[in-house]
Each structure stands twice: as C-alpha cells, then as structure tokens.
C-alpha cells in the first residue's frame, strides 16, 4: 500500500448559511494515528465529513494529489473508509451482513455471494475486532461495545488506505476504548492514515502520533501530543487544567479541573 496523503488547503464548510469550519489547512500523511480533538461545536465532525467527501466545501481537499470531487464515487469509497458517530443500524441485520457492507465499494451486492477474497477480508476484519462470535447475531440485540466493534469491522473491511472515524470510542467501557484505539493504531502502523475524532484527551495523548486541536471552526494547534496538549492550550480551548503523571517515562494526562473560562 502506498502511504496515502490528504492535504487540506484553506478549507471552509458552511451548513445552513453558518460557517462551521473556516480556513483549515492541514497536511496528513499515512502511517500515523491522528487524533482530531476540540471542545463541543469546534467543527470536528464537519471537518471529518468534508474530508470524507460527504459535505460540499470551499478550498481544496486533495487525496494523493487528486481532488476528492474529481474522483468517481466508488473509487473514493475504496480509498476512504468513514465511520460515523453513533453506530446506528436501522434494521436488525445480522452482524456479518453489516461487516460485509464494507465490501460494497468493491462491488459486493449480496453478502451471500462473496468471492473467496471478499470472504477472507470480512473474516479478517471480524477477527481483528474480536467479533467472530457475533456473526449471526442481530445488530439490534448487540451491546453498545459489540456494535461499535462490528461497525469498526465494517469500516476495516473496506481496506481503504484512509480511515476516518468519528468518536469511535464514545460510550464504550474502558477496556473496549483501549481495544478500539489499539486497533486503530495497528491500522496506522500498517501504513494507513487514521484520523479519529475523540473527546478522550488521556487516550489521545497516549495513543496518537499526532494531535489536531480545533476550536471555533479552525485548527488552533497541530503536532505531537506533548506540544499540542500544553497547559496554555488546554486552558484556552477547553477551559480546563490537566493533571500530568509520569508512568515509567510515559507521560499521562488526566483532565482535572475547570479553569475560569477565557
């Protein structure tokens, strides 16, 4: 897999006349787990959707040098896997059929008729996420953690070089938060570009290779976790102070106290 690269140049997104994201420029390359963080309403989800090609935007977003809009729908779907927040499923479909939807951009219409290759990829995605045992279970009877992992398996089955995940760890228990972040990090280690929106600063500080901090629709800081998550940044964007620990040389950050709003 050639390491993918997404470049944003002065990207703005308007929704219903309101400017949600304004003037964002970023250069993100494969092989990294990027945590996209920021307070509620900072524009993280909107920016992620624009990167996924789901929202019209101003400015340029290029994927490996070519503009997203120029790509054919299917081709783009094979290059960018997108995991929306909420992990909703509208019908009580069996879990394996949901994972099989990840092969849709590759031309799989019927989950009962798979090529050996598609079948292998689906099983591998379920193995990685530890969901093999859930295969026949209906999506509506799954627990929140199970459903989150099935959805993750679905997006992994796309085998796209870029993976955009919106709050993949929200409403998961601590164990599954770690499991999901570890899977995303593994994907990045394989050369993929993984961008995950998260509110969990502790996990982001520990697991991400790079952090993009948004506030008020713009990127206020971008870089290594230690640089972005400075006391000053946390105070200015979140209005909090963090507790910092050193666990055998590994820094840990815990949101600790509310600061007076700037």
């Amino acid at each position: 897999m050639n390491p993918p690269r997404i470049v944003l140049e002065d990207v703005s997104v308007r929704l219903g006349g309101r400017r949600i994201v304004g003037g964002v420029s970023l250069d993100l390359a494969g092989g990294a787990l990027v945590a996209l963080i920021g307070p509620n309403g900072a524009g993280k989800t909107t920016l992620l959707k624009a990167m996924a090609g789901l929202l019209p935007h101003e400015g340029r977003i290029t994927l490996n040098g070519s503009e997203g809009a120029a790509l054919d729908r299917r081709a783009r779907a094979r290059l960018i896997g997108y995991l929306p927040q909420g992990h909703q499923v509208h019908w009580p479909l069996p879990a394996e059929d949901i994972v099989a939807l990840g092969r849709f951009p590759h031309g799989v219409v019927d989950p009962r008729r798979l090529s050996p290759e598609d079948g292998r990829i689906i099983r591998e995605a379920m193995r990685v996420t530890g969901t093999e045992a859930l295969a026949g279970q209906s999506a509506t009877t799954l627990s929140g953690g199970e459903r989150a992992r099935i959805m993750l398996a679905r997006v992994l089955a796309v085998e796209a070089p870029v993976l955009l995940a919106d709050e993949p760890t929200a409403s998961l228990d601590p164990r599954h938060q770690l499991v999901v972040m570890e899977i995303l990090r593994q994907q990045a280690r394989q050369g993929r570009l993984v961008v995950a929106v998260t509110h969990d600063l502790t996990l982001a500080a520990r697991m991400a290779d790079r952090i993009v901090l948004m506030d008020g629709g713009t990127v206020v800081a971008s870089g290594a976790p230690v640089d972005v998550l400075s006391d000053r940044q946390l105070a200015e964007t979140y209005g909090i102070r963090a507790l910092r620990l050193d666990h055998g040389g590994e820094p840990a950050l815990i949101p600790w106290q509310v600061e007076a709003q700037p």
Binding site: K49, A52, A77, P84, G86, V89, H90, L93, L101, V109
Partner: peptide
C-alpha cells in the same frame, strides 16, 4: 436500487461514504 437500500441501513452518511449516490 437494492444494494443502496441495504447500505442505507447504516444511515445516509455511511451509505454515501460507501459510494451510494
């Protein structure tokens, strides 16, 4: 259109990201 209806089970955004017009 049947493939599109199945993908829509995941919501419009997920379906669009899978290449459903």
């Amino acid at each position: 259109q049947r493939g599109g209806y199945r993908a829509l089970a995941l919501g419009e955004d997920a379906a669009a990201s899978l290449g459903v017009p």
